[in-house]
Design a protein around this nucleic acid. Sequence first.
DNA 1: CCGCTAGTGGAAACTGGTTGTCAATATGTG
DNA 2: CACATATTGACAACCAGTTTCCACTAGCGG
Lengths: 158, 158
Amino acid sequence: MATNPITKASVLTDIMLAVFRVNGRLLEKGDLLVAPLNLTSSRWQVLGAVALAGKALSAPQVAEAMGITRQGAQKQLNKLEEEGFLEMLQNPRHERSPLYALTAQGDQTISATMSLQNAWANALAAQLPLQDLKSTLQTLNGIYEQLDSPVPTKGAKT
Amino acid sequence: MATNPITKASVLTDIMLAVFRVNGRLLEKGDLLVAPLNLTSSRWQVLGAVALAGKALSAPQVAEAMGITRQGAQKQLNKLEEEGFLEMLQNPRHERSPLYALTAQGDQTISATMSLQNAWANALAAQLPLQDLKSTLQTLNGIYEQLDSPVPTKGAKT
DNA sequence: CCGCTAGTGGAAACTGGTTGTCAATATGTG
DNA sequence: CACATATTGACAACCAGTTTCCACTAGCGG
C-alpha cells in the first residue's frame, strides 16, 4: 500500500463494492418511500412494469420486462391482485393465462409513486453536478455491456 | 417529452436503474467465477471479510464488516464452517461466542478467488478509461452519502 | 383429427437475506 | 457483590428471488 499504483482494475473493484452498497441502500430507501402506499420496492417495480406497458400484460411478459423469472413475477402478481392493485382479465389468447391490468387503485398508486420518486431523485441529485451524473451513467452502462459480453477475444490475439 | 430536458433527476433515476442491473449482473457473474471453488458470491464475501481482517472474527464482527445482520452472517458462517473453510476458535472474551478463522483450505480458497477477481477486473476494465472509472467511483460514493444522510440541514454538530 | 412440442401456471424446495423472540452470557453501575 | 442492561447464538417466520417438476393449454405438422 505504500507504493500505491491506482490501477484500473483496483478502481473497478472499488466500483463493484460501491454498486453493492448503493444497490442495498436504494432498495432500503425505496421500501421506505413507498411503504405509506402499502408497497415494497419489488411490488412497486412490478406495478411500474404494467403501468409502463400501458396495457394488460401476462405474467411471462411482466417477467421479461423486469428481467426476473416467470415464477418470481407470478408470485408478486398474485399478491398484487389479491390486494386490489391489479385485476385479472380474460386472455383471449390463452384461457389459463390471464392478463393483469391496473385497477383504479393501482393506477392511483402508481401515480403517487411517480411523484414520490421524482421528488426523491430531485433532492438527491441537487448536490451532484449534471456532468458527473451523465458520465457515471455512461460508465455504468459500459460496465454492464462488458459484463454482458465478457469474452470478446477468447483465443484471438492482438 | 418532445422537448427533452435532461434533468439531473432523470439522469439519477437512470443511474438507479443501471445500478440495479449492474448489481444483478455482478452477482450472477461472481457466482460463476467462484463456482469452481465451491463458493457463491455471498460465501465469498464472508470469507473475504475474515481474510481481510487478518485475524479470527466473531459473527457480529463479520456482520458489521459486511453490512448485513448478525443472523445473516451467522447462517453463512455455519455453512462455511461445516464445509471446512473456517474453523471455530475458543473466544477468550465470550465463552458462547466463538471466533471464526480461515482453515488451510479457506486460506487457499481465498487466494484463488483473489487471482480470479483480479483477472476478471483487469479484463473488464481494459475497455474503460481510468479517468471515467475514477469519477464514477467518486460519484457513486457521493450518491451513497446522499442516501445515507438525506436531511443535510439537520444536525450541524459533531 | 391426432399427437407432439412449446408455453404457461402452480407448488415445492432452496438461497440469501430480514425481523422477532428467547435464553444465556458479558458488562457496567450502584 | 448484585442486579440491570446489552451482546450473543439459536430458532422460527417471513420476503424476494431461483430452480425444478408437474399438469394443462395452444398451436403446429403428420
